[in-house]
């Protein structure tokens, strides 16, 4: 089943002389269960692409179909609900709530889903166990290493059982040991839990974990090929 489909998507910021064309007609199809890495220099449009995939932004023209449904025509409210139930985000800067322990951070999306506290807690614990942080529930982000923080963030993305996890340079703030751990974790989620992963990265080594590599340049896809999944 096709999960994500871009049909000649463009995105232009600003108007007139100052207009910046971030995407100039992008066609992408991502099947369920894929592990896709997106690479490209700064300003090539890869972040914009991910934001549109994540329904945080809307295309200027073209169509974006999520599970066959056109997202371009959705209201802000509908897109919020789509994010709530179907999408998981992982960011370069973790974005955990300070002075809030790991368990509560992971619970957060479930609060918006309106789950009762008991169920929330057990599911958050489960997610933390998946990312290998059992026993760290009561620790605040400040007491965790960067790698652990990113794992909490992944647990938060995972806890809603999303169709896809969108990761924006998830290893950008980590050293290489921690980076490899995070990548292995994403691989496990993809292979064992069947979660589609779309990840932006600058690091060719990290891109090797993905099974498909899309390269952006100047707002366009310049290459889109299987990666061979040469796991280092």
């Amino acid at each position: 089943m096709i999960l994500i489909e871009f049909r000649s998507v463009t995105k232009t910021y600003g108007v007139g002389q100052a207009a910046v064309r971030a995407l100039r007609g992008v066609d992408i199809r991502i099947e369920e269960g894929e592990f896709v890495a997106i690479m490209g220099p700064s300003g090539s449009g890869k972040s914009t692409c991910l934001h549109i995939m994540g329904c945080l932004d809307t295309p200027t023209s073209g169509e974006y179909l999520f599970k066959g449904i056109n997202v371009a025509g959705m209201s802000r409210y509908q897109r919020a609900l789509l994010r709530r139930y179907h999408l998981g985000f992982v960011f370069q800067g973790f974005h955990l709530l300070g002075r809030t322990n790991a368990l509560e951070n992971v619970e957060l999306p479930l609060i918006y889903q309106g789950l009762p506290p008991k169920e929330r807690r057990s599911r958050a614990k489960e997610a933390l166990a998946v990312v290998g942080l059992s026993g760290w529930e009561k620790h605040a982000p400040a007491e965790l290493s960067g790698g652990q923080q990113q794992r909490v963030a992944i647990a938060r993305a995972l806890v809603t059982r999303p169709s896809v996890i969108l990761a924006d340079e998830p290893t950008g703030n980590l050293d290489s040991v921690q980076s490899h751990e995070i990548m292995k974790l994403l691989t496990v989620l993809n292979e064992n839990h069947g979660i589609t992963v779309v990840m932006i990265t600058h690091d060719p080594e990290m891109a090797l974990y993905a099974r498909r590599l899309i390269r952006f340049f100047d707002g366009q896809v310049v290459s889109d090929e299987p990666n061979g999944s040469k796991k280092p």
Partner: peptide
């Protein structure tokens, strides 16, 4: 601001 951004990203609506 970043926290609000995160809440919106994980599916909080404007009203919420």
């Amino acid at each position: 601001t970043r926290e609000i951004g995160l809440r919106l990203a994980i599916g909080a609506t404007e009203e919420e």
